[in-house]
Design a protein around this nucleic acid. Structure first.
Length: 446
RNA sequence: GCUUCCAUCGUCUAGAGGCCUAGGACAUCACCCUUUCACGGUGAAAACACGGGUUCGAAUCCCGUUGGGAGUACCA
């Protein structure tokens, strides 16, 4: 049997960082098994869904290079099918029309009155009143399933309500739509956040009532924020676009998220190809932890720095090209500088700023005060030609009796305007002799 | 409250009864490299939540306590 997984976000906001990890797991699982990875948009809640978020989901997944097979499935387009399934359940006696009003339901829930909630469960008549369709939960027994992450789970049916599957307006609820769509799409493995475990018992009851094949379930723990709290939409760091804006590379985010709650021995840096090769989830050799993992920004930055300095400079240039506001004649200089600056940057944004501030114009931004330079030092620099190179400069410093360090820090200031920069002759190499001379003369005059 | 799941350094994790005086990574600190900063290298500090069992032997199995997560919608 070939594997089919799916990622099923709802278009109600910026793609959640936890959702991204779920997508990665699903994608990786499918790829590692030679199966298919499908994308389904759960847009049945019209009031909360928005087309702009659909774009952002597609855009974000593409950015991460997580590609899906076949066409996107829109849950809202399957509503007829959901209704058909609900009626089937009604016909085979596994569901019933419930005429309870909203207020009545609320009052019953407050009293935790499960019996009262089932008032219409065995009601024979047809009333001419609005109704919802409720699923007939078995009164006794247990529902059990083997979760490949959490192992065997079970729950007493008596703890489960007769939940709504079709609303008053004849639209399906999540519990029904999800089962129906997963079945229709031939999903074999459901990998999702463990906020869905409680739903799974209910969904399994639906599968059984329909005599449908039950997929394998993998419930992965949720991701928590840095302070150990639940990730809240109020926090800026839950949406993927935050990381993108910050200059995180997609491969770095992929790698970082993969290692959150999953591991392959002690390996920290795992390329996409390698991940596809060695990914397993659950089962005998599967590596996935059981409790929520916290986001750790420092580690993300470290991983990002690693990917940054191991990415071809030309590639990096392409990534920042559009945001670079520099004259054309500085482009070759900037390109050259990326070679030296990528090792010193942790994000693309940082790289872009370094490179434009230091190499994007005639003179650098002087962001620190000019260091002291002795008279002898000045004389030396007036005489020295930068094109002669480092050896010559050292010789001259010795001859003049000036510390190389003194000259070097002045040159660093002259060429970069800051205390932190590539080495002096790396900068000279990028700037060229003329521009370098110009910068030195200018600094000498300051 | 009820249901259910979980528990190794500050954080992410390795660990599937003896290989563990518990390993790696980030962060921290020291030193080395060095014209600055990074990168790189070496080293330090840092954890099996607690209490009972089972066993010749437990981080690993069982029970309890404590702590944490998730769910408890005509939302997904």
């Amino acid at each position: 049997m070939s594997v089919v997984t799916r990622f099923a976000p709802s278009p109600t906001g910026d793609l959640h960082i936890g959702g991204v990890r779920t997508a990665i797991f699903n994608w990786l699982f499918a790829k590692s098994q030679g199966g298919k990875f499908l994308l389904r948009i759960e847009d049945t809640d019209k009031s909360r869904s928005d087309a702009k978020y659909l774009d952002s989901i597609i855009n974000s997944l593409s950015w991460l290079d997580i590609n899906w097979d076949e066409n996107i499935v829109f849950q809202s387009k399957n509503i007829d099918y959901h209704c058909y399934v609900a009626n089937k359940l009604l016909d085979n006696g596994c569901a019933y029309k419930c005429y309870l009003s909203n207020e009545e339901v609320q009052a019953l829930k407050e009293k935790n009155d499960k019996i009262g909630l089932r008032k219409y469960r065995d009601f024979e008549e047809e009333l001419n009143a609005p109704y919802v369709i409720r699923f007939k939960m078995p009164l006794h027994g247990t529902i059990e399933f083997h979760d490949h992450i959490k192992s065997n789970l079970s729950m007493n049916c008596s703890d489960l309500d007769d939940f709504v599957i079709l609303r008053q307006d004849s639209t399906p609820t999540y519990l029904l739509a999800c089962v129906a769509d997963d079945h229709k799409m031939g999903i074999t493995h459901v990998i999702r956040g463990d906020d869905h475990v409680a739903n799974t018992f209910k969904q399994i009851a639906i599968y059984k009532s329909l005599d449908w094949k039950i997929p394998s379930f993998y419930h992965i723990p949720l991701i928590h924020s840095e302070d150990g709290k639940k990730l809240s939409k109020r926090n800026h760091d839950v949406g993927i676009s935050y990381y993108r804006k910050l200059g995180i590379l997609p491969d770095a985010l992929f790698n970082y998220l993969l290692r959150l709650g999953w591991s392959s021995g002690n390996t920290e840096i795992i390329s996409r190809d390698k991940a596809v090769e060695c990914f397993t989830l659950g089962g005998e050799k599967g590596r996935s932890i059981q409790s929520p993992a916290r986001l750790n920004f420092d580690k993300l930055l470290y991983i990002n720095g690693f990917y940054l300095r191991n990415t071809e400079s030309d590639r990096l240039y392409e990534m920042i090209e559009n945001e670079l506001k520099i004259e054309d004649r500085f482009i070759p200089i900037v390109k050259c500088a990326i070679d030296y600056m990528k090792i010193r940057s942790r994000t693309l944004v940082e790289l872009k700023e370094f490179v434009t501030d230091i190499f994007g114009s005639e003179l650098p931004k002087y962001v620190v005060p000019k260091p002291e330079l002795s008279h002898i030092g000045k004389n030396l620099l007036h005489e020295f030609d930068i094109s002669k190179g480092e050896e010559k400069l050292r010789e001259l410093a010795t001859a003049y009796g000036v510390k190389f360090k003194e000259i070097a820090s002045f040159l660093r200031f002259a060429l970069s305007g800051r205390e932190i920069s590539p080495s002096i002759f790396e900068m000279v190499q990028c700037l060229g002799y003329d521009l370098s001379r110009q910068r030195i003369e200018n600094a000498l005059r300051l």
